[in-house]
Design a protein around this nucleic acid. Structure first.
Length: 484
RNA sequence: GGCGGCAUGGCCAAGCGGCUAAGGCAGAGGAUUGCAAAUCCUUUAUCCCCGGUUCGAGUCCGGGUGCCGCCUCCA
């Protein structure tokens, strides 16, 4: 499969060709752990985790690294507000991250390094930069001298002199250039600190990612990804400091996902409209959330609102119905193999094959999940036709083919509903059987009463030519999601 | 001010020069059903405007209009 990815570096969609055949070195900027992750963070983690899953499916061995920024101003400030130790705070929210990520179905990275575990490396990296003459010190802080690195701006297309002009906020530093940034921050009283050649302090934000990339993946990686807002200055700075230190290209493909907005507004603290994953999961099934995230191409902005969410809920319902229809037929075929009519099955088998191809092609073209979802949708429509109880004949090959495709969809996107095996309630089974007897005798009132009873137990019966189909209904999601 | 992105049916959303412009949601009609449910079928697009390139453009180029992002911690 020829995968193509949009590279921010070249602003074009290019064939993806890893440096080392069959292996992908992939780094994603992880969360700063000072609060619960919000739904915008979730977009990054879900999208790139799924891309990694897709690459693995394409046969690549993917080494996937996602960091935790567990030391930083935001953490220090929040810890102060709450009167706790910054380390404790970070620890707490790393635990909360796991909970949210697990529920969202985001798989663990190959490794999740933390900034505080890499201070030695960070100091080492800064020393290299210092020895090469890329740094200067102001008030105990170590800054990167952007003027020493002419390639600065190659990712974001920004020019150093324009930045000085446009700078909206006065820096606390006497920087030589507006684009210079902190590598090592001296500790103020009461702040967490590590010893260093420049005195006690802590790493600047940008340097940690470079240090972790170098340590866990090497001087040149294949993919570096994150939210679009990280393009500048974070990723730009990562590039200069890494390339200045190693003299090697840092990352070959830069991937950036678009913002997630609440209605028409950007999510921000000042607007007070930050929606946490925790909050969303109270109202929506995690897989519905994933569906929403996949419903728009990852590079485009995604506007989260009621309609988008309920639309995804309906899609999810359809998937559940489909699985129900499928297992019902599978059961019937199991009981009495009705395999005649292979010729008629051929068109369905062909259809499954086509869908699989188109699904993969969509994802291979810059990970177009929206298009892939469209394919899945068409697949359901065609296969529901195949599964019509009226048809009266099905081949196992075809139902097996359906299962295979569903597994593939699940493996990459993780959106297929779990099949609730009818576990505990023999009772319902009995009621359904009784109702069948009543129906056979055309005792409609008895039948309807029984259905009511079944319904009250949280189940639904559907009558088909092959007999009743029954299932447990999910607990309805609690109310609407409204824009704050 | 600098850099970049986007404008497709009621809503969301694919589409990267060439069969009848995917798909979802909502609406309408129909098939099916004892009634339902589920499912299937049918049905809705001057692709923001104006020029240009081309045999051919939603798709490329120029201009305009309107939204949005980054340039400040931010995924």
């Amino acid at each position: 499969m020829n995968v193509r990815l949009h590279n921010t570096l070249t602003r074009s969609t290019e064939p993806f060709q890893p440096l080392q055949k069959g292996q992908v070195l992939f780094y994603v900027c992880g969360p700063t752990v000072y609060d619960y992750i919000h739904i915008g963070n979730a977009r990054v983690f879900v999208i790139f985790d799924s891309l990694r899953r897709f690459l693995e499916r394409c046969g690549f061995r993917v080494i996937y690294i996602q960091n935790f920024t567990d030391i930083d101003d935001k953490i220090i400030n929040r810890a102060r507000e709450k009167g706790v130790d910054p380390r404790e705070l970070a620890e707490e929210y790393i635990a909360e991250y796991w909970e949210d990520a697990d529920r969202l179905g985001v798989r663990r990275a190959t490794h999740h390094p933390r900034a505080t575990e890499n201070v030695e490396n960070i100091i080492g990296l800064i020393r290299v930069l210092e020895e090469k003459g890329f740094t200067y010190q102001v008030h105990g802080d170590v800054l990167f001298d952007v003027s020493r690195f002419p390639a600065y701006g190659k990712l974001s297309g920004k020019k150093v002199d324009e930045l000085i002009e446009g700078a909206r906020v006065e820096s606390r530093y006497k920087k030589r250039s507006g684009a210079d940034f902190v590598l090592w921050k001296s500790a103020k009283p009461g702040e967490p600190r590590w010893e260093s050649p420049w005195g006690p302090g802590r790493p600047g934000w940008h340097i940690e990612c470079s240090a972790m990339v170098l340590r866990y993946l090497g001087h040149t990686i294949d993919i570096h990804a994150g939210g679009t807002d990280l393009t500048f200055p974070h990723h730009e700075n990562e590039i200069v400091q890494s390339e200045a230190a190693t003299d090697h290209p840092f990352a070959r493909y830069w991937l950036h996902n678009g913002y997630l907005n609440i209605g028409e507004e950007k999510m921000s603290k000042s607007l007070g409209n930050i929606v946490t994953v925790r909050e969303m999961l109270k109202q929506y099934h995690p897989r519905v959330l994933r569906l929403v995230l996949f419903s728009t191409h990852y590079r485009k902005p995604l506007h989260l609102d009621d309609e988008v969410l309920s639309s995804a809920e309906r899609y999810f319902e359809r998937m559940k119905n489909f699985l129900r229809n499928l297992s019902f037929i599978e059961e019937k075929v199991q009981q009495a193999p009705l395999c005649e009519g292979k010729e008629q099955e051929a068109q369905f088998s062909e259809n499954i094959k086509k869908c699989r191809e188109r699904f993969t092609e969509a994802l291979a073209e810059d990970f177009n999940t929206a298009q892939a979802l469209g394919v899945v949708s068409e697949f359901f429509r065609t296969m529901n036709r195949f599964l019509q109880p009226e048809r009266g004949r099905w081949s196992r090959d075809t139902t097996a083919g359906i299962r295979e495709f569903l597994e593939e969809v699940e493996e990459v996107l993780g959106i297929v509903p779990a099949e609730e095996m009818s576990v505990e309630d023999r009772l319902v089974q009995e009621l359904v059987e009784k109702r069948q007897e009543a129906r056979a005798k055309k005792e409609w009132e008895t039948a309807d009463t029984l259905r009511e009873e079944i319904h009250n137990l949280g189940y639904v019966v559907e009558d088909t030519p092959l007999g009743p189909r029954w299932f447990r209904t999910e607990v309805e999601s609690a109310g609407d999601f409204s824009v704050p």
